[in-house]
Amino acid sequence: METTAMHIANGIVDGPVSAVFAVLAIAALAVCVRKAGHDLDERLAPMAGLVAAFIFAVQMLNFNVLPGVSGHLLGGTLAVILVGPWVGALCVSTVLIVQCLVFSDGGVTALGLNITNMALLGTAAGYLLVAGLLRILPKTASGLAVTAFIASVISVVVASQGFVLEYALGGTTDLSLPWVSGAMAGVHVLIGIGEGLIAATTVATVAKVRPDLVYALRRFRKPVTVPEVGVTA
């Protein structure tokens, strides 16, 4: 069997730093659950399950970016566009937890690190970029595709630098940080381009078939307005 590990393994970052990030991840996910409750209606809840399942599937599809080096989608930006930032972070976390506990991918000790990078940092960066870009780009299928592409490339690089931060704080080996940062950023720009193409295709397809199911088209139009009635915060 070839290499199938895709996330940070045990022992790469030391125990104390891994524990700190685990606590941080749990706290952030608790905030996401609270905020997500507001977004999750009867339409978004099953859609979010589908987004999680889709990200799981696409994460299995490693594509070559350099000779001997592959990459796969992380999914933060895709999730933000389809189901919003809070639910999106929970979707990516669900995928990472299933991968860790069922498929032995990504160390159990490293789960907080992986969630921090891909589900929190990647999704947060994706959200800020999507919200910003949709102020200038048209809210059409093609505008959404361009948004998804740009936001994906940058959010993947941001997620890769999350690892660099964790490695700087608790790396079990002593390599030069500028080298680690540069190597991670370089390869993740290429992975981000691949992710961007997948995310752009996916959101453009959903926007054409069911624009009403695209969170970014419904919610990023106006500042904070809740279209449904009967909501008391």
Partner: peptide, 11 residues
């Protein structure tokens, strides 16, 4: 899918 190590693993 490619069975090469991913960006993180390769680095």
């Amino acid at each position: 899918a490619s069975s090469n190590p991913d960006g993180l693993d390769a680095t």
